[in-house]
């Protein structure tokens, strides 16, 4: 038990150090840092504005009211903010493979997947998390919750968001690991960006049964923001909670195996 605790503390310290070094790197050009933060805010503003425009002429979107839809958008933004803020959507993996500098990270006496993941993070994107919390508060205020129910639902919601983080992290790791074969990362980022963006609105908008099957079973985008929001609004649903946890574990294990398989195909450019 002590050994596990020591390992967790070590991982946490390394993550903090990487975060600090990334803040230093970004703050070397403060003007650019602020511009990037404004850019992130602008993108979020567009998503919120789009929801507002849509709801200016309809009352519900695939069964979701305005504040419920805002809650889905806020949940997506939270996950997106954490993904950028903690591992920059694994941008560092593609970048290091492309430049042949991954060797430097692999020789460190720490789990390769972990170090490659936290090597780059975008501190300016913590702005997304702050904005998402504000949006979340607005959405919650607009929805009528009884106090006792809300606390349990909120606890489950946060638990499901952790699952969402692992699902989206795993999908990202698999897609980024393809760079081991292609050595180009730009196109892969485009796929990832559009795929994850699909989860920023309630997945009930996918009326077609095939689309619904793809986005719940094959690519579980429904579990990223729609399911957590549903649990917060409607209360516990054991089936959904178990499915989310199961998917998070399976996806994480599968993506880790795929990353290590890809690593075997890494042909360094510098050694």
């Amino acid at each position: 038990m002590k050994l596990i605790a020591a390992k967790i503390i070590r991982i946490y310290r390394i993550w903090l150090m990487q975060l600090y070094s990334n803040i230093m790197r970004r703050m070397a050009y403060p003007g650019n840092f602020y511009l990037m933060a404004i850019g992130s805010l602008f993108q979020m503003f567009l998503s919120i504005a789009f929801v507002n425009i849509i709801f200016s002429f309809i009352n519900n979107l695939a069964g979701w009211s305005y504040h419920q839809a805002l809650l889905v958008v806020a949940s997506y933004m939270l996950i997106e903010g954490f993904m950028w803020g903690t591992c920059a959507y694994l941008n560092g993996l593609s970048k290091n493979i492309q430049e042949g500098t991954l060797d430097g990270l692999l020789v460190k006496p720490i789990d390769s997947q972990f170090f490659v993941s936290v090597w780059q993070s975008d501190p300016e994107d913590w702005m997304r998390v702050i904005t998402a919390i504000v949006l979340f508060t607005i959405a919650i205020k607009g929805l009528d919750f009884s106090q006792d129910k809300f606390i349990l639902n909120l606890f489950l919601y946060l638990f499901l968001l952790i699952n969402s983080y692992f699902i989206i992290y795993s999908i990202t790791l698999v897609i980024r690991s393809i760079t081991f074969w292609t050595t180009e990362g730009d196109g892969l980022w485009k796929i990832l960006e559009t795929l994850t963006r699909l989860s920023q609105y309630p997945t009930d908008i996918f009326y077609h049964s095939i689309a619904r099957f793809i986005f719940t079973a094959i690519l579980p985008l429904a579990f990223i923001s729609t399911v957590p929001a549903k649990i917060l609004i409607n209360g516990p649903d054991i089936k959904l909670i178990l499915a989310s946890t199961f998917l998070a574990i399976i996806f994480f294990i599968a993506s880790r195996k795929f990353f290590h398989y890809g690593l075997k195909h890494y042909s360094s450019a510098s050694s």
């Binding site: 292609t182 180009e184 730009d186 196109g187 892969l188 980022w189 485009k190 796929i191 960006e193 559009t194 795929l195 699909l198």
Partner: peptide, 15 residues
């Protein structure tokens, strides 16, 4: 850099 073009097009399908 063909893979980049393929990636963009696949992403555009979802877009």
């Amino acid at each position: 850099y063909r893979a980049t073009v393929y990636g963009y097009r696949l992403g555009n399908i979802f877009d």
